Computed example of a mutant assay.
Amino acid sequence: MPIDTSKALAAAPLTGDISWTAEDVQLYHLGIGAGVPATDPGELRYTLESRLHVLPSFATVAGSGAPGVIRALSVPGVDVDLARVLHAGQTLTVHRPIPVEGTARTTSRITAVHDKGGAAVLVLRTDAADSGGPLWTDEAHVHVRGEGGFGGARGPASRLAAPTGEPERIVEHATREDQALLYRLSGDHNPLHADPGFARAAGFARPILHGLCTYGMTLKAVVDTLLGGDVTRVRSYRARFAGIVYPGETLRIRMWRAEGGVRVTVSAVERDEAPVLTDTVVHHA
């Protein structure tokens, strides 16, 4: 079997040093649609170096290294075709605000392999710390088609009950036709998001937007509309990638306040509200 569960779980952690600059932060923010309108004071927090704040989801690309999905495929015991791999979900816990410029040590390991029947889901945990201590912890959930049925546990239930009542806020965000080409400059060069031939081989009509791009856009919408633009209020953020986005489509982001956080759903307007992000929660101070 291409995934050797025992070997993957027993593998030594992947460690490395990463660093980033203000320009890396600005590029990431532009890649998730910040800077429109260009002179808006709220947008300048994301684009102008003299006012720069770091949206916590930057952690998923900090250092311009391989994203969690790609790192998971480099773990001993994991030997699968990239065309059968999708990002299924992402969680992020922020231990303190991410500095505009910095250097950190990352440690990544496979913590679980779930058997979903027709697929396997790898859970890759990454911890980042600098000289001041822990910075963030994230988990990438990696869906590998055709690798289930090996007799393993399905894993804990992660579905949440759907939010009830009218959302407090609804935001629509139009993605650019070249959104994926811009976002991939932050380090995720998976050809699924740029190469039409590769996308067709993976079962899609054309290249799709990175799930983590939608993830960042959604967090920005929550911060800007319900958290007063204060990125330091974010404590943790989780989402399940329920569907795809084609660059150029419009995201409809619905938000409900909940105890200690915000519940969110995201859909693609042009495809009859096809679900994009579900089971999504932003916990905040």
Rank of each mutant, 00 (worst) to 15 (best):
V54N: 00
R109D: 12
V121K: 03
T164W: 01
H95M: 11
G63E: 10
R254G: 03
L226T: 09
V245H: 04
I110F: 01
V85K: 04
L52H: 08
D81W: 12
V78Y: 03
L219N: 13
R240W: 04
G203N: 10
R254T: 09
R96H: 07
G155M: 03
V245R: 00
T91P: 02
E147H: 12
G197P: 08
R176D: 14
A239Q: 11
P41S: 05
L86Q: 06
L185Y: 06
A285G: 15
L182W: 04
G68I: 03
G216K: 03
R96N: 12
R257Y: 09
I18A: 12
A140Y: 04
S186F: 04
H53N: 15
R84M: 14
T21G: 01
I98F: 05
R96P: 12
S267Q: 15
Q26K: 14
T93Y: 09
P167Q: 06
A129W: 00
L219A: 10
K220N: 15
M1W: 09
P56D: 00
V54G: 02
R206G: 14
S50P: 09
L44S: 08
P56V: 03
G35D: 05
V269Y: 07
T91A: 13
I208P: 08
D279V: 08
R154G: 15
I70C: 05
V78K: 03
L226F: 04
D138E: 12
D224K: 05
A8Q: 01
S267N: 10
R254E: 05
R252N: 07
A119F: 06
Q26C: 12
P37S: 08
V25T: 02
E139I: 06
R96M: 08
G203Y: 02
G228L: 05
A112Y: 01
D195R: 06
M255L: 14
G187E: 04
A194T: 07
T218Q: 07
G132F: 13
P2R: 03
E249S: 05
A119Q: 06
T225F: 11
E172S: 14
P99F: 02
T93F: 01
V231L: 03
A239T: 13
D224V: 08
G243K: 02
A119R: 10
S19W: 11
Q90G: 01
A62W: 07
A120S: 09
G133Y: 12
G102P: 03
R200W: 04
L212P: 02
P191Q: 10
E139Q: 13
E147Y: 10
G89N: 02
